[in-house]
């Protein structure tokens, strides 16, 4: 199919082309050929599920009787918008997103700045920072869940040993959201720091030297040289973290080991809400509707990010 899209060159250098038309056509088609595997896989595992999910979301489908699909139109969507638990999940996704993304990126920026100096054992620190990222979500969350235990957790033990009241890190709304965010922050800070570090190393060293000559302190250098130079990298990490936060799933699922997101759904994210509809309550149609709403939400967020970035670029010029 790729071949049909290639057109003949209008160039007048006809003789060569007439001599070996087949080889030329093949060489034209080659890039498409190389791209094809990706698009075939994408169609099978990306596009088809996406469209099929849309189809399922317009039906009433129950896992226990999944052969039977009853057309319900947009009922799954209207029901979703009327469901207070959906709005609760949306709110939680947003608050947990802010609670985890903001400290994570700020800390990553600071860490990257420190690692950019000539330190002894720099490679060690850089590798160490990537360790949380390489740890499985399940393992990390289970360890954190132990730390955050109400009666026998390390954190509450520390709190009570300095005379503070223990906190119920599971049942309390803010405490539990902070708990989940802590796992996310711990996992992704190092990863973002490394991306920032790579961005920083692309900033010409002369800029720092001349800034230093002008008497700029390290803090001033960071503010006026590093941050502006990193702007494209920062936008990239913000976009990626926003998408990650919208899809947040593993950490809240494993925090207490159930899809409800706590006894009052106080840290149930959209991803978890979808999973609960599909795999705890077995309403596949409704889960598919949630999936599509999440997809549209992410598209909107990405567009908003792009618009903001484009606007900033324009005002800069």
């Amino acid at each position: 199919m790729a071949i049909t899209t290639t057109t003949r060159s209008p160039r007048p250098a006809a003789p060569a082309a007439e001599r070996r038309p087949r080889a030329r056509r093949a060489s034209r088609a080659a890039p498409y050929g190389y791209l094809a595997p990706f698009f075939v896989l994408f169609a099978a595992f990306g596009l088809f599920p996406l469209l099929y999910t849309a189809y399922v979301s317009l039906h009433r489908v129950e896992l226990q009787t999944s052969q039977q699909m009853d057309w319900v139109g947009f009922q799954n969507y209207t029901r979703l918008l009327e469901d207070p638990f959906f709005w609760n999940a949306l709110r939680n996704t947003f608050t947990i997103g802010v609670l985890s993304t903001v400290p994570q990126l700020v800390m990553a920026l600071g860490l990257a700045h420190l690692l950019n100096y000539k330190l002894r054992g720099r490679t060690f620190f850089r590798v160490a920072m990537l360790m949380p990222y390489a740890t499985s979500v399940a393992a990390a969350t289970l360890v954190f869940a132990q730390l955050f235990g109400r009666d026998y957790g390390l954190l509450n033990w520390a709190l009570s040993s300095v005379g503070l009241n223990p906190v119920d890190w599971q049942a309390d709304t803010w405490a539990s959201q902070i708990g989940v965010s802590a796992v996310v922050t711990w996992r992704w800070t190092g990863y973002n720091a490394l991306i920032y570090l790579a961005g920083m190393q692309a900033i010409p060293h002369e800029l720092y030297e001349s800034a230093a000559m002008d008497g700029a302190s390290r803090w001033k250098q960071f503010l006026h040289v590093t941050v502006p130079g990193l702007r494209p990298t920062i936008i990239f990490t913000v976009v990626v973290s926003t998408i990650g936060a919208t899809q947040l799933f593993g950490e809240p699922l494993l925090y207490e080991g159930n899809a409800g997101g706590g006894i009052s759904h106080q840290y149930q994210t959209l991803g978890l809400y979808m999973y609960e509809q599909g795999w705890s309550f077995f309403h596949l149609g409704r889960a598919a509707a949630v999936a599509w709403v999440m997809f549209l939400l992410i598209v909107l967020l990405a567009l908003a990010n792009a618009a903001i970035a484009a606007r900033r670029n324009r005002t800069d010029r």
Binding site: D168, Q170, A171, D172, T173, G260, I263, S264
Partner: peptide, 19 residues
């Protein structure tokens, strides 16, 4: 099964969050 869990979860709210 589902109903029993909803009730025991709600009792968890009563005892742990003071609802």
């Amino acid at each position: 099964g589902v109903i029993g869990k909803a009730f025991t979860d709600a009792l968890g709210e009563v005892e742990r969050t003071g609802t």
